[in-house]
């Protein structure tokens, strides 16, 4: 009996050691290529950084860099505000759209496989190199402005829409948001690839027997959506909120990230750039916490 217990203990120990060995790559990588750079970047934020031939030199300047970023940089505040606003306004749009599209793609119809392949294409094409090229591309711009239906920049003709909604006597802010939202339809669609995928996988994991049972009990489609689909999907909604925020503030066409990069390599220097990215990180963390916090309250875990 005693020897048996001793054997079991060694097995547990062996398992523990194996587990740690398997996880070792990440621990090393995290410390060397993640934790260290983060701490350094915080230090850089409070220093003036000078790159020399054999290394680099730091001079402490206190909060100077942060002050420069916020008070002296001509663009930073505006771009920061716009970027954050865009992140916040994108989240509901992307979520609603991807949820809707996922339930559409979850139905049975001819050509479903093709439609799915097409819808995940943005995941493949959301390319840094292509996106940055597109911003300055002549043909894209020409075709977008001259084509009569005008996909981007004038989807459905924003002016016509504005006058149509304007005739409904709605508050001005609401109107601006709607027009802006319609303008961003192509962007929203292209930013929803992964979210559709996640929702779709979630929808497929709901056992059909639940719906059958509720139909027999006399539930309407509306009721079974709110009583079955929505609660089961609620953890995924939280996942997607987090994903959308993270994705949109690290996107390749993000204006602020370009600004930070330009500041580092050609503007006010590494110190100010570090300070900027910390301010940005703080702002985004706040948004993330606020959104995830307010959502997680009505997320239902059914396990």
């Amino acid at each position: 009996m005693k020897s048996n217990r001793g054997l079991r203990l060694t097995l547990a120990q062996r398992e523990r050691i194996t587990g740690m060995v398997f996880a070792l790559p990440f621990v090393i990588g995290f410390i060397a290529f993640f934790l260290r750079p983060i701490l350094q970047s915080l230090i850089f934020g409070f220093n003036e950084l000078e790159v020399l031939t054999g290394g680099y030199n730091l001079t402490g300047v206190g909060f100077q860099n942060f002050r420069k970023a916020v008070l002296e940089h001509p663009e930073f505040n505006r771009v920061l505000f716009e970027t954050c606003l865009r992140v916040v306004s994108d989240v509901p749009l992307v979520l609603m759209f991807s949820f809707f599209m996922a339930s559409l793609l979850n139905q049975k119809f001819r050509g479903r496989l093709f439609a799915r392949t097409l819808f995940f294409l943005p995941v493949i094409l959301a390319s840094g190199a292509i996106a940055s090229m597109e911003q300055s591309d002549y043909m894209t711009a020409v075709l977008q402005t001259t084509s009569s239906s005008g996909i981007s920049g004038g989807f459905l003709g924003a002016a016509a829409l504005r006058s149509f909604i304007g005739s409904m006597k709605l508050p001005e802010q609401f109107l601006t948001y709607i027009v802006a939202a319609v303008d961003r339809i192509p962007h929203v669609i292209r930013a929803s690839g992964i979210q559709i995928l996640i929702f779709l996988a979630g929808l497929q994991s709901i056992p059909p027997s639940l719906y059958e049972a509720s139909t027999i009990e006399g539930a309407t489609g509306w009721e079974s959506f709110w009583r079955i689909t929505f609660p089961i999907m609620s953890p995924l909604i939280l996942t997607n909120i987090v994903y959308t925020i993270v994705d949109s503030f690290t996107a390749a066409d993000n204006e602020l990230l370009t600004l930070i990069r330009e500041t580092a390599f050609g503007g006010m220097g590494f110190g100010v750039s570090s300070a900027m990215s910390w301010i940005y990180f703080a702002a985004v963390s706040l948004i993330l916490l606020a959104m995830a916090g307010s959502t997680s309250r009505w997320v239902i875990y059914y396990e």
């Binding site: 995290f30 290529f33 993640f34 260290r36 750079p37 983060i38 350094q40 970047s41 850089f44 950084l49 790159v51 680099y56 987090v242 993270v246 503030f249 690290t250 990230l257 930070i260 990069r261 580092a264 590494f270 750039s273 570090s274 990215s277 910390w278 940005y280 990180f281 985004v284 963390s285 993330l288």
Partner: peptide, 16 residues
């Protein structure tokens, strides 16, 4: 690691 913007570690990574 997913939540931290890559720009935060841009310069230190470069220097490292």
């Amino acid at each position: 690691t997913l939540v931290v913007p890559p720009q935060l570690v841009l310069i230190p990574t470069y220097l490292n």
